[in-house]
Design a protein around this nucleic acid. Structure first.
Length: 206
DNA sequence: TGCCAGGCCCTCTTTAGGGCCTT
């Protein structure tokens, strides 16, 4: 059984919501979690080749003047593909970050072999009483003092990593499960909320 | 010209609609 001991936790800032509509990445931030600790990190601004909107400048704090001298998406994503290696991946609302990772890596003819996991889907199942499941709300929910600026890629990746560790700690505290396999995590994030308790109870014995 | 994401998930559901999340 392959335990989920190593993951790359990543977050993109982008020019918009959809690469299919022409949006590009403008920043990637990531940390590598190994055995519950952050052992490495990656951060890079990238020039998408066109001006970003005022909305995105305000939302992210990343201005056009910060991007004009930044390396290209292609250059940064080459480095990031090397950083990912063969690790599995995690993001908050992974469907969003996966769209951009797939699009940006396709641009440079690169790929990745790992599976994407989602802290949003998992937190909806484990922290069912949270007011909502935005990253910032969940960080408050788990009593982690935020020490940076949300909507910047590295900080959001760092907070997502802390959220993930809190999810694993909650599972350990409530069910006595010390380690979950990638297959078990995949099953958990697809299980209906009402069935999560039974699923984890059963995992104790398998 | 006008429009513009998309996957998940709940429910007053499944012959559907709308809120939540991400930028």
């Amino acid at each position: 059984m392959q335990f989920a001991n190593s993951l790359v936790v990543l977050d993109f800032e982008t020019t918009g919501l959809s690469p299919a509509q022409g949006d590009r990445a403008i920043e990637i931030g990531a940390v590598r979690l190994v055995n519950g600790e952050v052992v490495d990190e990656f951060q890079g601004l990238m020039n998408p080749g066109f001006r970003v909107s005022g909305f995105i400048e305000n939302y992210t704090g990343i201005s056009n003047s910060m991007l004009v001298d930044a390396p290209s998406c292609e250059e940064v994503m080459q480095q990031f593909a090397d950083f990912i290696g063969d690790d599995h991946l995690l993001a908050h609302n992974a469907s969003f970050d996966k769209k951009f990772l797939d699009a940006e890596l396709a641009n440079i003819g690169r790929d990745y072999s790992g599976t994407f996991f989602c802290s949003l889907l998992t937190s909806r199942r484990i922290f069912q009483t949270a007011i909502n499941h935005q990253l910032s709300t969940l960080v408050k929910h788990i009593n982690i003092p935020p020490t940076g600026q949300y909507h910047r890629a590295l900080f959001d990746a760092q907070m997502t990593a802390q959220l993930w560790l809190a999810i694993l700690a909650d599972i350990r505290d409530r069910y006595g499960i010390d380690q979950l396999s990638f297959a078990q995590l995949a099953k958990l994030q697809k299980t209906a909320k009402k069935d999560v308790d039974k699923l984890l109870q059963n995992m104790i014995y398998h």
